[in-house]
Structure formats: structure tokens, C-alpha cells
Amino acid sequence: MTRHRWLVFSYFAALVALWEALARLGLWSPLVFPSPMAVGAYLVHALADGTLADATRVTCRRLFSGYILGLMFGAPAGLLTARFKIVQDTLGVIALGLQTLPSVCWVPLALLWFGQTETAMLFVVVMGTTWSVLIAVDAGVRNVPPIFARAARTMGSRGLHTWLKVILPAALPHVVAGMKQGWAFAWRSLMAAEIYVTILTGFGLGHLLHYGRELQAMDQVVGVMLVIILIGLLVDKLLFSPWERYLRRRWGLAL
């Protein structure tokens, strides 16, 4: 292992050791401040009996279907608002307004419209994702230097060709940033929805967190929080890092 990796490893080891030490001091009740050992024991147990895997599967299914739907609505709509003034002044204004609305505020409406169903859950995630993706794509396209399109026109590029071969690739750094932001919004809105909405069609990580609180099981609460963080990190590394590496290499951008 390199020196750098050792440093990173020791950092995290020290963090866990400090946590364990604090727990052993007994300043707080284990009901409030569980030791890493207790959290670890819960995670092992929950992994063994399948609750954690099931909850992760349920959550990820909702997350990705909602996120992909949000992208499917948001990205083309963002292109339209950037291209047509009339769409900008209508849909664009609505998007700007709705984007400021914290996605958890959609939950009461979703519950009344769809009841305690998967649809309600999906609706909240889609609402959380769409508007931020729309606005990011719109901004990305608007930030494309006009000189690119002008240069392309002199070389004989027109209309759709200019959009597909010039405007879209030129907006890519912003679009990726928008997708990343959209993902963050989707993740947050799903957790809010899962904690609020009790449904019987599947227990997600948010539900596990919620029941941890109801049962005063702090080891479960902290354990599930760790899993949620881990999923966020993994998606960042697996889904977005390759794109960002590509942009850094091609554009010479520091992202």
C-alpha cells in the first residue's frame, strides 16, 4: 500500500476508534449513542436475514425509476426552454418556481392524490428530479458560446445537425452537472417520501430508518444511515466519476 492509502486508511480507522472510545466512556446511554460494534452487529444481522438487501433493492428500484423518468421529462424540456422563448416564459417560469419547493412538500399532495401507493412515492421523486434537471440543461445550453454554432454554420451545419453535433456536446459539462444535481434531489426526495409514507408494497431504507426510531433502536438508525451514505458514494463513483474523468481529459476542465 502506498503512503497515501495508508494515511486515508488510518484516518478512517482513527475515526472509528474515537467513536468506540467515546461510546465506552459511558457518558451517554447506548440507547442514544450506540458503539460502532453495536452498529456493526446490527448491519451483520440485517444483512444475514435479508432485510437490508430487500430494503436496498426496493429503494434503488424506486430511486432509479423516478430518476430516469425525471431525466426523461427534465432534459428534453430543458432543451425546449433554451430553444424557444415561449416555452421559457411559460414552462420555464413554472420550473423555476417548483424547483424552489423542497420536494418533501410534495408528499401531502401525493398522498391525497395517489394514496399510500408506489405511485405516490414515484411522483415525489419525479417532482424532485425533473425541475432541477430542466433548469440545469437549460442553463447548460444557454452557456454554450455562440461562436461554436456560428463556426458550425460556416461549415455547412444547420438546424438539427447543429443541435446534435454542436450545442448538445458543447453543453455536456453542464448537462452532467445537472444530472448529478438531479440525482441528489431524487435521492433526498425519495428518503423524505419513504420516511413519511408508510406503504405495504415494499419497505425501503427510509422505512427501516423510520422503524428504527419507533423502536428506539439507535444501532439500526445509525446503521441504515451509513448504508444510505454508502449508496450515495457508490452512485457518485460509478455513475458520475467516469463522465467527469472524460470531461476533465477532453475539455481540460477542473470539475
Binding site: 458560446p145 461562436i147 461554436f148 456560428r150 463556426a151 460556416t154 461549415m155 454542436v166 456536446p169 458543447a170 455536456l172 477532453r250 475539455w251 481540460g252
Partner: peptide, 14 residues
């Protein structure tokens, strides 16, 4: 038939 060279290179970074 008329190509342009601008003050900025306007090359496509992608």
C-alpha cells in the same frame, strides 16, 4: 465556398 477563421479559434473541445 466561404470559410471563416475567427479571432478565437472556436475549436470544439469535445
Amino acid at each position: 465556398d466561404r470559410m471563416v477563421m475567427f479571432q478565437e479559434p472556436a475549436l470544439f473541445p469535445w
